[in-house]
Design a protein around this nucleic acid. Structure first.
Lengths: 205, 205
DNA sequence: CAAAAACTTTTTATATGTAAATAGTTTATT
DNA sequence: AATAAACTATTTACATATAAAAAGTTTTTG
């Protein structure tokens, strides 16, 4: 009945959904695994839809993820970017295709809603960083924020679905580091580049 | 009966397929539009499959496209890249989603075959260019050809299908120029960068 | 002989039905 | 009072049927 009980259910179900997908985790499964009866389960959630929705809400509000990151105030745009990339790497590694697949198939409205939310937040983060970097003189003054932002989002979404890297047997980490460097050099100004080189160990692992 | 007659049919049908897709262009349509009878048409092609195949072959062998580009010998890696990008831009603008959609749906084997071919050629071109650029000292010596090549291919494929740019109303040309610059700066070495700056008007329009 | 039309066969899209799986509800049990 | 089990109602997946469209063939006509 308590709010915490509900939250705990959501938290547990989240794990199940992420591991096995949404379809194959039945309400019976949930009840069994959590050691509660379906009756109790249905006292907290009117139907499965609501449960799925709650899990999605929970996921989007995970503190300090790519989507909710609060940057420490004293960072410059390059440091922010580094921080942001580590969150992205984490996101990619936690990414479960089966979960997304089921979501798209059985709850398309939900998928669209949360995907839009994800995009909006991502775009805001990236765009702000670009603007900041330009203001600090660390990024090229001639770059088009709108385009680069969208390219970055596109790359992020594609990298999670493409089969292009499959046959090459390259680790996500290696790919991601290469992207990071490629991205960095792609946007920095001369001043930014000098700063990069000065902190070589930090940025260009 | 002549080889040229056949080629002409293929050439015309190619245009029809690219404009209207494959499914909606029936064999009757083809006969009508080309002013020939189906009987004649079926004397040149045993069935529609063969016609589709011929069109695909024709497309992949278009001289001096992205897939068949022969680089002039006296170019350095940067000039090559510039040349290659203009071919890519052309490719994107000629790209017809409806055609690809039908191909994927009704001739999945064909799609796979030609897509694989496309990827192989594309990868070869890009990789060779990267290797050349490194050898010339124009590109960063630390970049990983395999990853950057695949990233480039991925970006190319994604840009043709993504909806991320739709709401922004940015022209393909603008997007492509930005990508080109982003890409250039992402891979050049200091020497390469100096060369870029010297030829600013040529590379960074 | 080649185009046009008429014709047959095959493919595609759509609809319907059915069985299995799962959601959601009620009853029994501790 | 909450779980477990039994039950009903939906949903989903899969199979089959049917009609329209298009492929492919034959006949007619200029």
């Amino acid at each position: 009945m308590t709010e915490t009980k509900r939250n705990e259910i959501v938290d547990q179900v989240k794990k199940l959904y992420l591991e096995f997908g949404i379809k194959s985790v039945t309400m019976d499964d949930v009840a069994h695994k959590l050691g509660i009866s379906k009756k109790t389960l249905y006292e907290h959630f009117t139907d499965k839809k609501q449960l799925v929705w709650s899990v999605l809400e929970c996921l989007t509000n995970t503190p300090n993820s790519v989507l909710t990151a609060n940057m420490p105030k004293n960072m410059n745009a390059l440091e922010e970017l580094l921080h942001y990339y580590s969150l992205q790497l984490e996101m990619i590694q936690n990414h479960k295709p089966g979960f997304i697949y089921d979501l798209k198939k059985y709850y398309p409205r939900f998928f669209e809603h949360f995907n839009k939310l994800k995009r909006t937040r991502f775009i805001t983060q990236v765009r702000n960083n670009l603007i900041k970097g330009k203001a600090e003189g660390l990024f090229r003054s001639d770059l088009d924020e709108e385009i680069i932002t969208r390219l970055t989002l596109m790359r992020m979404e594609c990298i999670m679905t493409t089969d292009i890297f499959l046959d090459a047997d390259i680790s996500n980490i290696k790919i991601f580091n290469e992207i990071f460097r490629f991205h960095l050099f792609g946007i920095v100004s001369e001043k930014g580049r000098k700063l990069l080189e000065k902190n070589n160990d930090k940025f260009i692992a």
